[in-house]
Design a protein around this nucleic acid. Structure first.
Lengths: 138, 138
DNA sequence: TTACATGTAATTAGTTTAGTTACAGAAATT
DNA sequence: AATTTCTGTAACTAAACTAATTACATGTAA
């Protein structure tokens, strides 16, 4: 199961995008997400490193550096997900066995395709899409 | 990161399929996978429950109940993966906040689509495909 | 200068994963 | 029939990961 960092990060970005001109503190955001402010600051740190938002240490608030329509969920996912590969493989299968010797490279093909299919879906969805769906659900 | 159970399970099934008529013990399979025999027996138990293979308690070996071309990697994945949903969500976002109130249902749409895209890739690949690629890599 | 914010390191509790030990029960071997 | 060997499964352990939390250095603003 993939961690909840993508979900929380989208929540954070959606809050910022829907409150233009308002400086939202990590504590305020944490109240909406229902978590600890430090969790929010850790994620905004990663989002800042990825160039998705800007903050000033000591100053309340964060601002998006791109238009919500230009921020894909894949960008957010990549920003906060430390692991590059989605599927794990068992290590050191027996090289003396024809199956063990080639299973990793063989499975890797499949796993890469599956991961790319997932990422392609995250890439076609933008923060703007999320915000519109949030609004229509209201 | 998704656990390595799919990788190990495909390894197990590929071994069985490529050794027709030979009764492979969990210890032999464990030697090829490079793990403990109990890990193999646990997975074969799940694969048996899913109807992918048959075993007899006390008797060495396992046999596939379907043609390798009829076993998709999605079947294997579903057999050994306990979690239905791939992405985690933070729980109890603030219902008093318009974003918090609707973020879960909104993100769920995206997450379901992404997961389905991944599963679709696993569905088009069969054990037979894996075995052929194993053979051509040799 | 005081109050309050962010950034970040360190610690903790809970969960998950894989590996391991142990053993009951079934099958095969002698 | 007794012994050996296998599978099935429960129970325990160590390692890794996640999120929550505490603590505090540092920056901003009133």
């Amino acid at each position: 199961m993939i961690n909840s960092r993508l979900a929380v990060s989208v929540h954070i970005l959606a809050l910022i995008a829907t409150h233009p001109g308002q400086a939202l503190s990590s504590e305020y955001i944490a109240g909406s997400v229902n978590t600890n402010p430090v969790v929010i600051r850790r994620l905004t740190g990663l989002l800042r490193q990825a160039g998705l938002l800007q903050t000033v240490a000591g100053k309340t608030g964060a601002t998006l550096t791109k238009d919500p329509a230009a921020i894909t969920l894949l960008m957010v996912y990549r920003a906060v997900e430390p692991k590059e590969t989605l599927f794990s493989m068992h290590d050191r299968p027996n090289p003396a066995c024809p199956v063990g010797r080639n299973i990793q490279s063989t499975l890797d093909d499949t796993f890469v395709r599956a991961q790319q299919a997932l990422e392609a879906e995250l890439e076609v969805e933008t923060l703007s899409d999320v915000i519109h769906r949030l609004a229509s659900a209201r």
